[in-house]
Design a protein around this nucleic acid. Sequence first.
DNA 1: TTTTTAAATCAATCTCATCCATGTGAATCC
DNA 2: GGATTCACATGGATGAGATTGATTTAAAAA
Lengths: 150, 150
Amino acid sequence: MDEIDLKIVSTLQKDARISLKKLADICFISAPAVSTRLSHLEERGIINNYQTAIDYKVLGFPIKAYVSLRLSPTDKEAFYPYIKSVGNVISCDCVTGSYSQIITCYFKSTKSLDNFINDIQRFGETKTQIVFSTSVDPRPLELNPGKNYF
Amino acid sequence: MDEIDLKIVSTLQKDARISLKKLADICFISAPAVSTRLSHLEERGIINNYQTAIDYKVLGFPIKAYVSLRLSPTDKEAFYPYIKSVGNVISCDCVTGSYSQIITCYFKSTKSLDNFINDIQRFGETKTQIVFSTSVDPRPLELNPGKNYF
DNA sequence: TTTTTAAATCAATCTCATCCATGTGAATCC
DNA sequence: GGATTCACATGGATGAGATTGATTTAAAAA
């Protein structure tokens, strides 16, 4: 994980479809060299996958919500496979604080969000925060040390 | 936005680096046809960008946190440009409930997270939830109607 | 019916990715 | 010190993929 790897990763973060040749030009190494480095980054799990950021509103999912869940420890085994299987959920984290899980999800309507909440209430108490507007769209983390304030 | 566009979008979501040729095979149309459709999807803003999912732990950002902020309406104008400028922040949403903003962010240490929280407290009261573990990693939304429960 | 438009195909060209043989420099061992 | 090894980079060749332009088709508008 040297300077060049960092350059590859940070460039790919912003444009996952860039060609190896352009990456090679940016990094001042040959295209085959970029190719082997990329493979290693994937093998080592530093690069997990390549995703496309979509406007979910246009595709019929205008409702984004953060659902917090007070999950009792005994239900964890049942909860994890369940939450993975729900296609509306794009992330789920176990966190500190009084609510143990934060679920980020998208829905076609408030009604289907309501159905979801009713369904997961068997795992514990919930709190739902619906998104009005987004000021920072899901974006890559800034890796350049100079540009991070903290 | 027909069946083929949906197929293109949902395929790209899972693998943004797939070749146009493979996309063409999957959609049963020619490669140039995929190319023009892709351009249109980008122009219309349905596809925003292509991102690479990185293991931030390995790159020195082991701390993920959700920071909730009770932002007073008068401070909004100052807050939005500020929060955009912080490279540690990967998303920020205005939500319903007693806290008006949910900020998702990554840090090198709890100390730098602490610095960040101290900094944004000038905008209002905060609540921080640090991520212990992740059961559903940031993933694309399931667009196939058959696979969505809600 | 005719015209227009949008979008597809095909063939040709050009760009790009990959493979393989070769070369280079740093660390290790005799 | 000189030889060996290993990791990694390069360069050229080959094959795969992207793009362009000309043409065709089909559906909607006049």
